[in-house]
Design a protein around this nucleic acid. Structure first.
Lengths: 350, 350
DNA sequence: GACGGCGATGGGAGCGGTATCATTTAAGAG
DNA sequence: CTCTTAAATGATACCGCTCCCATCGCCGTC
């Protein structure tokens, strides 16, 4: 009763051609008579045939599969806390749809950056799935173990949103420019004491944002004491802790920028708990423009990262390279960001 | 330079056993001497070997792959509008982690319920991916075309969160009880005129919620005019339209329940625009407990669905059945929901 | 008109596993 | 000590596809 799916042999028989010719038609290879091509396509249609990915992977040099390596800790934390996972949603959105267009599939994998089995994990995924390409998201895209494993096996990869150059192709946005624009936005509003809640320094964009923040402040004639920068780990709780630390300073900042949405929301909750008016007494700025940030009260000024577009571009590069058989060029793609000015930033209290 | 991954043959050679014995060890088959088993495992470890999924799929009867069929329209709408996609996030969360535990993978697929190519789409996925099982989410889990295609090919599936019985195994919550409890909650607060913004009737839980709402109202001695029920399609915009329709009634309701989070947030935005106090003049209740609902101002009273747990259970059923080789029993799993009472529901205005 | 070259097609060898069945080995019965 | 029997192991045929190479015909060239 279990209807077995048609194979290429059935198609070949029905079209009265050889298996090889069917393969040619399916892969758009040249040198096939229109007549034969038509017969094959008709047979394919009639039998509802769709080539087995597994067989293709085994026999050929392509698997029609891309893998996205995501950070396990951050992803699980987001899922568990149910505070949304916009970065991943948008990544899936961009990459999946691009894959679909070319008959590719996207496999979502979580890797634990702290595990001493990291290389083994990666290797296992690569050899069991044999993907045609890999999309690396922060912080994996900067992890030498991950990069090394990929290079050793000569598997094409594209790094998403990393400032680190020279390690292979990447799709990114200008994080420095974003940090500069964000800092200037606050300076322009008259803020002199600005605190920053940084992200995990395993993400090098975290470091860049801090550096650029400090540099931009200094360029405006304001030295940034160490106490103004709190190092968090991208969690809501870190935002709370950072906000408390900053607001407990003898001279607390009048504005706080947080390196991602969860931490920014943590700052908001602290302000609320302490009865601090936002933006009246405290301006808050986020580096992720997710739904929580937009729905927050007040809605937060935030840097908007083109995550879906970056993912789409990354998938595009990998698929194009794999289809053409050419080696992926190490080029970088720069995508524009946007500073969404909303209600959480206002003039510094006098 | 490109390091080729080790194959079962390399392992067999290194362990000085036959290929078949390696296969036995890898699949935990009985009748292998501890001595050999150990040698094989050592070789596996040393070579960093991980069996090729593609080869296993081709040769064996399992593919170690589950597919989740999700509604294309709703998913894309959620992604595009960037209002979060909690249902899918939680589905991934539950199902993926369960898959990981058993060396399975989860493939996320979008299918267009309106397409006349629907059956062809499904068939193509099934024959190209050959999954060991399929997770169906609403409204696909009630779509006869989808169910038919699956049954024709004898592919095990589990339906998520559908009230429809007798079509195969499912994991669900008691939607009627939820609707009843939600309605009673509002009745208990003294509301007499309650409006409902229903979901797309393609989702049979939408229908159930409406029916139960009406029945519960009638049991309390209140007849529900047709105008009190607005049919939406789960989008924010539908919530806006529904709220406007309900609030424009000669005798507008003092409470509105919306069949999902997006529509509930639409209602909130209308109330805000019209200057209607929530919950002072209007109580609002949602059927999804997502981040938007929790962060909304005021935070919304909502039915909390155990999506991650349902997905985990579904994956578990499929994997267990596939591993044991037994046919999936048609049993159903009922999981508990919870009514989260928050700030958006209050006593009816006198 | 023989020959080279190229476009169009087919034949058959794998790819890396699993499944079936044969074979060897060891244990227990008579 | 032989014979039976089951456990332990191996040999080998696929699975469905792509890739390499052979073949065949047809044209143009000198």
């Amino acid at each position: 009763m279990a209807k077995r799916p048609a194979t290429i042999i059935h198609v070949a028989e029905k079209a009265r051609v050889s298996v090889k010719t069917v393969s040619r038609v399916l892969n758009n290879e040249p040198n096939v008579t229109p007549d034969l091509k038509e017969r094959v396509l008709a047979a394919v249609e009639k039998l509802g045939y769709s080539p087995s990915k597994a067989a293709r992977t085994m026999a050929g040099s392509r698997s029609y599969l891309l893998v996205a390596f995501n950070d396990r800790r951050l992803t699980l934390d987001n899922w568990r806390s149910e505070r949304g996972n916009e970065w991943i949603d948008q990544m899936l959105y961009g990459a999946m749809l691009r894959c679909e267009q070319s008959g590719y599939h996207l496999m979502f994998e979580l890797v634990d950056r702290e595990s001493d089995q990291l290389e083994k994990q990666i290797t296992a995924v690569l050899s069991s799935l044999q993907p045609d390409g890999v999309i690396l998201t922060p912080p994996n895209c900067e992890n030498p173990v991950v990069l090394g494993a990929l290079k050793k096996r000569n598997i094409p990869f594209v790094r998403l949103n990393t400032p680190v150059r020279g390690q292979g192709p990447r799709v990114y946005m200008d994080d420095r420019a974003a940090a500069r624009q964000a800092t200037r936005h606050l300076l322009g509003l008259g803020h002199k004491r600005i605190g920053m809640i940084a992200g995990d320094y395993k993400f090098s964009s975290s470091i860049q944002r801090v550096e650029t923040f400090v540099a931009t402040m200094e360029a405006a004639g304001i030295a940034v004491p160490e106490a103004w920068v709190y190092q968090g780990d991208f969690t809501f709780e870190a935002g709370v802790a950072g906000a408390n630390a900053l607001l407990d300073l003898p001279e607390p900042p009048t504005a706080i920028m947080a390196s991602n949405d969860q931490m920014a929301l943590g700052v908001v909750s602290v302000a609320q708990a302490r009865g601090i008016a936002v933006p009246g007494a405290l301006s808050i700025l986020s580096y992720d423009d997710s739904i929580g940030v937009r729905l927050s009260v007040p809605s937060l000024t935030a840097v908007r990262q083109p995550v879906a577009r970056m993912a789409e571009k990354a998938a595009d590069m990998l698929i194009t390279a794999s289809a053409s058989g050419e080696k992926l060029t190490a080029g970088s793609q720069l995508l524009p960001f946007e500073l969404m000015v909303r209600a959480s930033t206002g003039p510094a209290p006098r």
